[in-house]
Design a protein around this nucleic acid. Sequence first.
DNA 1: TATGTTTTCGAAAACGGTTACACACAAGAA
DNA 2: TTCTTGTGTGTAACCGTTTTCGAAAACATA
Lengths: 359, 359
Amino acid sequence: MTGDRNHEANGAKARRSTIRDVAAQAGVSVATVSRVLAGSHPVSEQLRAKVLRVVREVDYVTNAHAKSLAGAGQLSIAMLIGDITGASFAHAAKGVEQEAASRGSLTLVGSTDLDPAREAAMVNLMREQGAGAVILIGGASDLAEHQQRMARYAKSLNAAGSHLVLCGRPPLPPEVPAITVDYDNEGGAFAMTSHLLSAGHRRILILPGVEGYTTASIRLAGYTRALEAYGMSVEPDLVVHTTYEYGEGARAVRQALERGVEFTAVFAGSDVVAAGALEALRSAGLRVPEDVSLAGYDDIPLARDLTPKLTTVHVPYEEIGRSAARLALEREPGVRGEHKHVVLGTHVVVRQSVAPPPR
Amino acid sequence: MTGDRNHEANGAKARRSTIRDVAAQAGVSVATVSRVLAGSHPVSEQLRAKVLRVVREVDYVTNAHAKSLAGAGQLSIAMLIGDITGASFAHAAKGVEQEAASRGSLTLVGSTDLDPAREAAMVNLMREQGAGAVILIGGASDLAEHQQRMARYAKSLNAAGSHLVLCGRPPLPPEVPAITVDYDNEGGAFAMTSHLLSAGHRRILILPGVEGYTTASIRLAGYTRALEAYGMSVEPDLVVHTTYEYGEGARAVRQALERGVEFTAVFAGSDVVAAGALEALRSAGLRVPEDVSLAGYDDIPLARDLTPKLTTVHVPYEEIGRSAARLALEREPGVRGEHKHVVLGTHVVVRQSVAPPPR
DNA sequence: TATGTTTTCGAAAACGGTTACACACAAGAA
DNA sequence: TTCTTGTGTGTAACCGTTTTCGAAAACATA
């Protein structure tokens, strides 16, 4: 007895009290309790007060499962993220969570770790939960395969009275019933490339992303368009594909340097890739921006923390998340969703990492 | 008709198919379907195959709400985060999500925005969802008030057959039935202060956190202990309280500089506070680490990206999250939880931001 | 007082699963 | 043959809500 530091009631089975318990203790029917709680039908002030008192006494909370089974459930939203640890994804996630919370509903999350199999399994789990919509954030892949997979999800989700919304993923053919909200990726790449060109740079090393992925090719398109506006064309040596990881940025510029390709600016595919590139530039004895200029993409907090502060293109991730959630929640459940595509603007935010080229 | 780009079946009400539909179409009873799906009882191979075929044909998924109502629900876990956007929280969140996913269950999330009212509302929402456990991550506050609030949550959660687990929050009195998993905060502060002292620093500006909060006072305790081991005592001018935001780090050192307090090293309360401090130091014309050394806390990816790379104390956030989830999931639901406290180790990782003091 | 209206409330049927129980039918033991 | 035993299968009760429907009560009207 002396060594027992545990709680007095420790080990006792705890049963959650139900609406029937409340009804019994208040001397009314379950229907009445339900009505005062939902405010769906008028109840005399007398009973109302008694019910509320009992509810507070036994610390009753309604069982959400039973409620949605009975058809009055909050339509909830589920989101699937490649990696919460990525700042841009986290901001988008925050946006959807905020919007959902402001409407009183919780959010289900899962992460795929960029694995299509896990993604499919998670979508299934979410379907079981009866999510009103599932939002996929980030984590693209090969275009054709991606479109097939998404079409499958959309069809299956629609059949269950729910819908699919995609954030920052490749666009879908108009016949697949899904909502996509994306940012102006081509425009961002175009704007930044133009910024670099107007600063005087002519040889810009671009790290557009993963080869064969849509994000990369779209950025390349923007880069190309900007170059052509200056009467130039893209030089193959100046584009090297990378993933979005730190180490890849470093590897890419190291490799370019070793090959002897000349450039006065590097346009990284993300801010963290830019951080990696910065590291590689530094250890090669190059100063930024005096010797070579550096630009990023995303505008996550890191951009401000780098030395020099990173010039980058701003992507409104949080707003993307909010839009996605809003769109998802506004769709009437049980109605098949039509195709919809909304794109949010980007712009370059200039800080200290780009300067005119040397000489 | 020409302008209609919508899906053919658009607008049709979609009804999710039930176990009864499957049973009818396969010519068996609902019990049989349930049994093949759950594998709970033997079913002849013939029926089994037929059922599975129909399941695939109609793309049936079981209704999770109905399942948990019937008592066979996956016990799920819910987590409440102050701000997903913070890297350390995000890593912890990733840990819990991973652990949960590896056991086949989704995670519910909500964010409190550090608002106690929203926190309480969210805990209630989670209780309604029947979460097997609620994990609170980050977001401390005044100690006494915090303890009261947590005791209330723990009691209410226990009464409903669930439990409370806290990550990186102030410790609780042993009589409150909750699990807390934390890192060795005092030890981390002690180790880093010792590291700084052994490098030769004697006047170390410390930014321990928010005044009156436990995290701050514990770190101060570690700092003090290290100082005393060198026969020194803490000088009030050298401790300035801040929140964990970037701007606060900058403000704090700027203020110290203006007041003319002398120091050769600053020990920031988090890596992002360190980033802010770095900025302020730089704009005051001080070089890091030549003129003043800088140390952080957390060891998030940012630490590696700063210039110079930040020496900091490593906190195993992801592991904390995993432990929390494991502990939560292993507790038998419906049994009142006892009090438990697990603490994970920290260590200093030395990089480039500390050097011997000048002269 | 008798009658029509309006309120307020309770009984019971869903919702979509799981599972205890009963039962049919086969094979092996007596 | 008859009695067990075991294996598969179906019937129906139950989980905790919401909601329809109808009854009772209260009030207004004639």
